[in-house]
Design a protein around this nucleic acid. Structure first.
Length: 609
RNA sequence: GCCCUUGUAGCUCAGCGGUAGAGCACUCCCUUGGUAAGGGAGAGGUCACGAGUUCAAUUCUCGUCAAGGGCUCCA
C-alpha cells in the first residue's frame, strides 16, 4: 500500500529549482531601466512627502535599487507605506522621463535653485556634457540614465520598498549619515512574489534559526558577543567535519601542528600584524612583566616551528596544517551568527617550498580543496586570481614566477578563473575561491596566498644543494576559511537537512508500544557499537507524534519499531531524503548505515534483501 | 563605531503606569496507540542590565549590554 509521506528528495534538499527566473539587474537592460527609474520615482515621492529631504544618489543594485536621503527625521515603516502610495500615484500618472543635456553652469544654477548641496558636490565630479532626467514637469535629478520612457512602463504591482538603513554620504563613515531606503522592482508581479518567496526561503535556511531549532550552538550574552558555544549536537557535527578534514590532510601529505593561543607580542611586531591590524586585535595582557597577545593568526607560529631547526632543500615541500582558533576584535554591530564572530577556528595550513615547486603545490591544494568542498556538496566554484598590486614588496622575478605558478596550476586543474589585476596582497599573489550554495548564493571560503613577506621578516632559510642558504616560498591556504563560518554556510546549504554521515542523530528509534522497548534497546546498542548515532524516542507519545517530532528535528532516518518488527528482527525505515524504505532486517540496516558513514553518503543504500 | 528596529517562560509571541499571559517544548497522570500533533494536570519569568520620573515602572525617560536590518571594516 502506498503511504502518503511528504518526501524530501535528495535533489530538493540541495536545490529548489524555481519556475520563475529572476535575472540580475545587469543581465536585463529593461530591468535596469525599471529599477533605475523606480529609484527616481521613489525620490520624487519622498520629496513630495518630506520637502526637507535632500537627495543624494539613487542607483540600481543587482537585486533592486536604493536612494539615500538626508532628512531631518529618520523614516519609519509607516513612512515607507506612505512613500509607496506616493510612488503608485506617480506611476499611474504615466509621467515622461526625459534626458536633458545642459552646460555645467546651467546645471549649477538649477541645483542651487533647488538647494540640493549633495547634488552640487556630485556635479563637481562630473564631466560635460552634464545630463539630467526630468520626471514629469516639476521633478528632475542629475543622472546619466538610462531610464524607461514614462512611468507607465513601471508596474505598480511589481515593486516593494523593503527597508530603511543608515548609510554614509560617499560611503565615508566620517561624513553625514544618510537615510537609505531599499526597494526592489520587477517587470511582473509574479517575479516580485518569486523574489519574496526566495527571501522566505533564505529565512528558512538561516543558520541562526536552524542552530537554535536543532540545538547545535548558541552565543551567550553573559560570555560576550561573537563567541560561540557548541552544543553537543553541533559539537558532534564539528568533530565529524574535523575528522574528515584531518583524514584528507594526512592523505594529502600534510602533517598537523598544535600551537599556543597566546604568545609574546614581539612575535606580532616581527610579523608586521601589529602595525597593520592593531585595531582588530584583542588587547595585550601582561604576565611576568612580559606582554602577551591572544593570537589573531596562526602563521607566525608555523613560521617559528619551521625556524626551530635548520632545514634542507630535501625536506621541502613542508606542508603543515592546524585547526587554529584565533581571536579578532570585530567592531560592535558587525557580528552575525556564526558568519562573523570574534573567536573562530581557521583550517590554516602553510606550505614551505622551492620556487620550482609552486605549481605542483598549488595544484595539490586545488585538488584537496575540491575533495573537501565536494564532500559537502559544494561543486560550483568561482575563482579569482589576484595579481601584483602597485604597493607591494618582493622583486619582479619572484612575483612573475609565483603568478606563473598559480596560473599554471589553475590551467592544469582545468578550472575557469577571472584575473583581478592588481588585487593581490602586498606580500604576494593569491587565488580566492567562492562556492555556490543550494539557492545560488556565492560564499568566499577558500583562499591560497603566496607570501614573500613573512619568510623575509622571520629570516627563514633552507640549505640548498650547493650549500648556500636560500629563502623558501611560503604558501598560506585555508579551505573552509573559518570552521564556524563554513558550518553556517553548510547549514544554510542543506537547510538543516544534513546528509546521513554528518547528522548528529542519524537514526531515531520509534517504539510503537512499551512492549517493544527491550527490542529497541538491543537495536540501539548494536547501532552504538557500530558507531552509528541513534536514540530511542522515549516520550511515550503515539507514533504520529513521534514521526512528527523526528521530522521536525530533521533526523535522516526514522525507524519504527512495533510488535511486528520485534518479532521479525526488522526495522521499518522512513528516510527524509529517500522516503519510505519499508521493513528492513536489522543486520542490513547496520551494514547500510556503516557503509554510509564510511562513504560519507547522504543516505542509506539498501541492497536487495 | 554609525543609523534604524528590537529585547517579556527553553522557543515563537501577546500584554500593560497598579507588580504577568498564550501556543509549542518540559514534568507527572490517563491512554498501549502503526507513519506529521490523543486527553488531563503541573512546573517554569529579577519582563536584558543600571539609573531617573512617579504614591507606584515590565510599561515612560536616559544610559549600558546584546540581537536584527544596513553603512563602514574584515590579515
Amino acid at each position: 500500500m502506498l503511504r502518503k509521506i511528504p518526501i524530501l528528495t535528495a535533489k530538493e534538499s540541495v536545490s529548489s529549482a524555481a519556475a520563475v527566473a529572476l535575472p540580475k539587474t545587469s543581465e536585463s537592460p529593461q530591468l535596469l531601466k525599471i529599477r533605475h527609474s523606480m529609484s527616481h520615482v521613489m525620490a520624487m515621492a519622498v520629496q513630495q512627502l518630506f520637502p526637507n529631504a535632500r537627495v543624494t544618489i539613487g542607483p540600481w543594485t543587482e537585486t533592486g535599487f536604493y536612494y539615500d536621503f538626508d532628512n531631518p527625521d529618520p523614516f519609519t515603516e509607516a513612512d515607507l507605506k506612505a512613500i509607496k502610495k506616493g510612488m503608485i500615484k506617480i506611476i499611474n500618472q504615466k509621467l515622461p522621463l526625459q534626458r536633458v543635456e545642459v552646460s555645467r553652469a546651467e546645471a549649477e544654477t538649477r541645483i542651487k535653485a533647488q538647494n540640493e548641496p549633495y547634488k552640487l558636490e556630485i556635479l563637481e565630479g562630473l564631466q560635460e556634457p552634464i545630463t539630467l532626467y526630468t520626471l514629469g514637469e516639476k521633478w528632475w535629478d542629475l543622472c546619466a540614465g538610462p531610464h524607461v520612457e514614462h512611468t507607465g512602463q513601471l508596474n505598480a504591482k511589481a515593486f516593494e520598498l523593503e527597508s530603511v538603513a543608515g548609510a554614509y554620504w560617499r560611503g565615508d563613515e566620517n561624513r553625514q549619515q544618510l537615510q537609505r531606503i531599499y526597494g526592489t522592482a520587477f517587470e511582473t508581479p509574479e517575479q516580485l512574489s518569486e523574489h519574496k518567496r526566495r527571501i522566505e526561503e533564505a529565512k528558512r535556511r538561516d543558520h541562526r534559526r536552524i542552530g537554535t531549532d536543532l540545538d547545535l550552538f548558541s552565543i551567550e550574552d553573559e560570555a560576550g558577543a561573537g563567541l560561540v558555544f557548541w552544543h553537543p549536537r553541533g559539537a558532534r557535527m564539528r568533530l565529524l567535519i574535523e575528522d574528515f578534514w584531518r583524514e584528507a590532510h594526512f592523505a594529502g601529505g600534510y602533517e598537523l601542528l598544535y600551537t599556543p593561543h597566546v604568545a609574546d607580542i614581539d612575535l606580532w611586531k616581527t610579523s608586521g600584524h601589529l602595525d597593520f591590524y592593531r585595531e582588530s586585535m584583542f588587547g595585550p595582557m601582561t604576565v611576568d612583566e612580559r606582554e602577551y597577545q591572544l593570537k589573531p593568526m596562526n602563521c607566525p607560529f608555523h613560521v617559528l616551528t619551521y625556524a626551530s631547526t635548520l632545514r634542507s632543500y630535501k625536506e621541502l615541500p613542508i606542508r603543515w596544517a592546524e585547526l587554529g582558533t584565533v581571536y579578532r576584535y570585530e567592531r560592535p554591530g558587525v557580528m552575525h551568527g556564526l558568519m562573523r564572530v570574534r573567536g573562530f577556528t581557521q583550517d590554516d595550513a602553510h606550505v614551505f617550498c622551492l620556487p620550482e615547486q609552486i605549481s605542483d603545490e598549488i595544484l595539490k591544494i586545488l585538488d584537496l580543496t575540491e575533495t573537501i568542498l565536494s564532500t559537502f556538496d559544494f561543486r560550483n566554484y568561482e575563482i579569482n586570481l589576484s595579481t601584483r598590486p602597485e604597493k607591494s614588496i618582493g622583486d619582479d622575478a619572484v612575483w612573475d614566477l609565483a603568478t606563473k605558478g598559480l596560473t599554471e596550476a589553475l590551467q592544469r586543474k582545468g578550472w575557469d578563473y577571472k584575473i583581478d589585476e592588481g588585487g593581490g596582497a602586498f606580500y604576494g599573489p593569491k587565488i580566492d575561491l567562492k562556492i555556490e550554495d543550494a539557492i545560488g548564493r556565492m560564499w568566499q571560503c577558500s583562499t591560497i596566498q603566496l607570501d614573500f613577506n613573512l619568510p623575509e621578516r622571520f629570516g627563514l632559510e633552507y640549505v640548498a644543494a650547493d650549500g648556500s642558504r636560500q629563502r623558501p616560498i611560503m604558501i598560506h591556504r585555508a579551505i573552509f576559511g573559518s570552521l564556524e563560518r563554513f558550518f553556517g554556510i553548510m547549514t544554510e546549504n542543506y537547510a538543516g537537512d544534513f546528509p546521513f554521515w554528518l547528522a548528529p542523530e542519524q537514526i531515531r528509534l520509534l517504539p510503537v508500544t512499551d512492549e517493544v522497548m527491550g527490542y529497541a534497546e538491543t537495536i540501539q546498542s548494536e547501532l552504538s557499537a557500530a558507531g552509528i548515532r541513534s536514540r530511542i524516542d522515549r516520550s511515550g507519545e503515539r507514533l504520529g507524534k513521534l514521526i512528527r517530532s523526528g521530522e521536525q528535528q530533521k533526523i535522516p532516518v526514522l525507524a519504527v519499531i512495533g510488535a511486528q518488527e520485534a518479532e521479525q528482527g526488522t526495522l521499518s525505515l522512513r528516510s527524509r531524503r529517500q522516503g519510505d524504505l519499508g521493513s528492513v532486517g536489522r543486520s542490513q540496516v547496520l551494514q547500510a548505515a556503516t557503509a554510509a558513514n564510511a562513504a560519507r553518503a547522504a543516505g542509506l543504500e539498501l541492497g536487495a534483501s
